[in-house]
Computed example of a mutant assay.
Amino acid sequence: MPSVERDENRENRIETEIIVDTDNDKEERAMGWYYYLDDTLNVPFMAKLKKKSRKTGTVEEKEVEVLGMAPDDDCLKDMYVDVVYPGGKDEDIFTAKLSEIEPIDADDETNEAIADWHYWLARGYKF
């Protein structure tokens, strides 16, 4: 059962802009999402990385800077972004699931694209 109500505007955008012409092919759907997000996310932007601790089960929040999408080969099963902690160097860059990212100071287009991905997951959709 989906955890969010159906949003016709999002459904239309997903069907006509993101997964259009994918013919229910998992890899094509993943790449549709990848290229939509890669084109739409205006990086860099600050965000909260919300990750559930394996030990305690509590949600840990850390501020990160989102630098861009991870390589497309990494995004065939889920969407990932490259992030760094504030003040970090190139060698400190790591990958995070986009589902664990909550934008802090992103523009409207970026916020909408991330909300689209969160909606997709909350509705229980899969590639």
Score class of each variant (00 low, 15 high):
Thr95Asn: 07
Glu60Tyr: 08
Asp72Glu: 15
Asp82Ser: 04
Thr95Gly: 03
Thr95Cys: 00
Met69Phe: 03
Val64His: 02
Val83Gly: 01
Glu91Asn: 13
Tyr80Gln: 01
Lys62Ser: 10
Lys89Gln: 15
Asp90Met: 14
Asp92Gly: 09
Gly68Thr: 04
Asp92Tyr: 10
Asp73His: 11
Pro71Trp: 02
Lys62Ala: 10
Gly88Tyr: 06
Lys89Cys: 12
Cys75Gln: 02
Asp78Val: 03
Asp92Asn: 12
Glu91Thr: 12
Val84Pro: 04
Leu76Arg: 08
Glu65Ala: 13
Val66Cys: 10
Asp82Gln: 09
Lys62His: 00
Gly87Phe: 15
Ala70Ser: 14
Phe94Gln: 07
Gly87Pro: 13
Glu60Cys: 00
Glu61Gly: 03
Ala70Glu: 02
Met69Leu: 15
Tyr85Asp: 13
Lys89His: 14
Pro71Asn: 09
Lys77Pro: 06
Leu76Thr: 08
Val66Ile: 13
Glu65Met: 13
Val66Met: 11
Pro86Met: 11
Ile93Pro: 07
Asp74Gly: 02
Ala70Ile: 05
Lys62Asn: 11
Ala70Met: 08
Leu67Glu: 04
Glu60Met: 04
Asp78His: 10
Asp92Lys: 02
Lys77Arg: 11
Glu60Arg: 09
Thr95Lys: 03
Val81Ile: 06
Asp72His: 14
Asp73Thr: 05
Pro86Phe: 05
Val66Thr: 10
Cys75Ser: 01
Val81His: 01
Asp72Cys: 15
Val59Trp: 02
Gly88Ile: 07
Gly68Trp: 03
Asp74Leu: 08
